[in-house]
Computed example of a mutant assay.
Amino acid sequence: MTPGALTALGWSAAALIGLAFSGLGYTVVRAFGSGAGAYTDSMSEEASRRFEDLFLFIPAKRISDIGRAAAAAVFLLCFVPLFDHTNPVSTVAGTVLGLTFGVLALMAPSKLLDILRDRRRRKFNEQLVEALGSMSNALRAGFSINQAFESVVQNGEKPISQEFGVMLQQMRVGMNFYDALQSLDKRVGSDDLTLVVTSIDIARRTGGNLTEIFDKISLTIRERMRIERRVQTLTAQGRLQGIIVACMPALLGTAMTFIKPDLMIPFFKSVNGMAAIGLTALLIAIGWFFISRIIRIDV
């Protein structure tokens, strides 16, 4: 075989290998994209249902679009400053950093939902104390337990009036009283409400005095809230220290980047700089973990 034929054969083999790897890469990327899209849609639908529990009616497609747009923006924000075709280490670091923070941005709607749900739960617990007193007075006046709930819906504030209103609506369409209470307890996710629901169920089965039970539960919840506020006051300094310690390196690095970009940008693109940033992030995470464990006191 002539040298020209061998050269042509070699180029043909290389082309076939490249084509095979290109097809494999395309298949993997397409499968990954399809799986990621399905996961994102599923997560968006779940987030949409949980937003509806908070009486925030946002379509699942809108949540998915917001998450993808945020992920793309964060990826470009992390990747573009570190991209350098002459420095593969910086490019790889930018890609990894962009993918990491992009995934976190994609999960941001779910995290935002957890924050809103927690705030709504705390507000519900604060209103539950007054609602129990109102229901106790209504029962003393001769109202039924359903009428006591209706008085809270009519005279109460959001979110407790909304949640009790949904429970009464479920009862009007055929759900029994106990199942409606269980649905309310599951939807709100409050330990205080669980105590109330359990007490109502026991009183209905054994014939207990609901007015006294509501008064005692109200007193218990009020005392627990007083202790929680006291704990929050005593641990405020520790929480502030943790926030300052976690944010100070990032703020100083950002300030130095704007003040001395010719000094900081090469540092970010170097191997030693990447290692230093990674070690700093690890130490901050460890410090924040221990601080959060120290100041976390369950009441």
Rank of each mutant, 00 (worst) to 15 (best):
E45T: 06
L76R: 00
E150T: 04
E212G: 15
D114I: 03
T27V: 13
E130Y: 12
D179P: 03
A70K: 03
A5T: 13
F75V: 00
A105V: 00
N272A: 14
L139V: 05
G165E: 04
T257F: 01
K269S: 05
I17G: 04
V245Y: 11
F83R: 01
A203H: 06
G156C: 05
R172Y: 12
R226D: 08
T91C: 00
T254P: 00
Q147E: 14
F177E: 13
A31D: 13
R205C: 03
N176C: 02
F32I: 02
S42K: 08
K260H: 14
S64I: 01
S144P: 13
P261N: 04
I160G: 08
S22W: 12
P88C: 01
M274S: 10
L240W: 08
G25K: 10
F83P: 01
S12V: 05
G242D: 09
G37D: 14
V231F: 07
I115G: 06
I160Y: 08
D185C: 08
T100Q: 02
E212N: 15
I295K: 07
R50L: 14
R117W: 03
P81A: 00
V89Y: 14
M167P: 06
Q162L: 15
L139G: 12
A72W: 00
R204A: 12
Q147A: 14
V28W: 11
D84Y: 01
E163G: 06
E157C: 05
P109K: 01
A14M: 06
F149T: 01
F32V: 13
L113G: 07
L82M: 05
I217N: 04
S48G: 12
G18S: 09
A108E: 02
V89P: 03
R204C: 04
V245Q: 10
I66F: 11
I213Q: 06
A250D: 04
R122M: 10
R230V: 06
G142Y: 10
R224F: 02
T257R: 01
Q182D: 15
V92A: 13
F101L: 06
N137C: 11
R120V: 02
P109D: 01
A141Y: 09
Q162W: 13
R239C: 05
I284S: 12
V80Q: 00
D192T: 01
S136K: 13
A281M: 12
F214V: 04
A71N: 02
L77F: 10
L219Q: 14
G67H: 00
L195M: 15
D53C: 09
F57D: 14
E163H: 09
M43G: 04
L210P: 06
D114P: 02
L116T: 04
A15R: 02
L116H: 11
F290I: 15
L9P: 02
I265V: 11
V28L: 14
I160D: 09
G278L: 10
S34V: 14
G10R: 07
F51M: 15
A105M: 00
L219Y: 08
I63W: 05
E45F: 08
T206D: 05
L113Y: 12
T233M: 13
R30N: 13
E150A: 14
M248N: 08
E228P: 07
F164Y: 13
I297G: 09
A8M: 11
Y39R: 08
P59G: 01
